[in-house]
């Protein structure tokens, strides 16, 4: 017996004829293509497509989970206490931390000597951010420069995660922002 689905499409004559619908679809795609082409030819902003990575989209949701950042203390040192909660909770085993001891600073005796995230494994679930007891790791909405040709080159180390400055985060101030890629308005 053929199974009946609750959302079985009810096709009218127009849809059954098929050709009319195909032409309608081609008109939509063609319209977008020509519109983009026109904007590109006349050097106007607002094409639906962006020239990644020179341009990045600015309309990521504020809740989007993109690249990680390691926050800093007031004195510029890394906030992370190397407790390994993020590495432990990570379902993709993407985080590896090597700890260092510094008893001259009794308030911050343990810190990460190396902090490595494997972006070829990361599934951007955000558990690391949730598990962090120190608000030391965050995910910002931007997703720059992820693609690569080599899995081994897709590790992000401590320096990259600390020094990469996303544009603006109201909750915690970062040291001076570095020039960021151009944002485009679609």
């Amino acid at each position: 017996m053929k199974k009946e689905y609750w959302n079985k499409p009810a096709l009218g004559l127009r849809e059954r004829l098929y050709l009319l619908e195909v032409i309608r679809g081609l008109c939509i795609t063609g319209g977008v293509f020509l519109g983009n082409m026109w904007k590109w030819l006349t050097f106007r902003k607002g094409a639906l497509t962006a020239y990644y990575p020179e341009e990045i989209r600015s309309d990521y949701s504020p809740a989007n989970r993109g690249r990680h950042v390691l926050t800093r203390r007031e004195n510029g040192g890394v906030q992370c206490v190397s407790c390994n909660m993020c590495a432990t909770v990570c379902p993709a085993y993407a985080i590896e931390i090597l700890s260092a001891a510094d008893f001259d600073d009794p308030c911050h005796p343990k810190s990460p000597e190396r902090f490595e995230i494997d972006y070829s494994r990361c599934i951007f679930c955000g558990f690391c951010v949730e598990a962090c007891p120190e608000d030391a790791i965050r995910m910002v909405k931007e997703v720059p420069d992820f693609p690569g040709f080599d899995r081994d080159a897709m590790w992000a180390g401590r320096d990259l995660l600390m020094n990469w400055r996303p544009t603006g985060d109201p909750a915690k101030q970062y040291p001076a922002a570095s020039p960021s890629p151009v944002e485009v308005q679609p």
Binding site: Y93, E96, L98, R114, E116, D118, W155
Partner: peptide, 8 residues
């Protein structure tokens, strides 16, 4: 085994 490191 499941906690073997790669980058470190």
């Amino acid at each position: 085994r499941e906690w073997h490191v790669r980058a470190l």
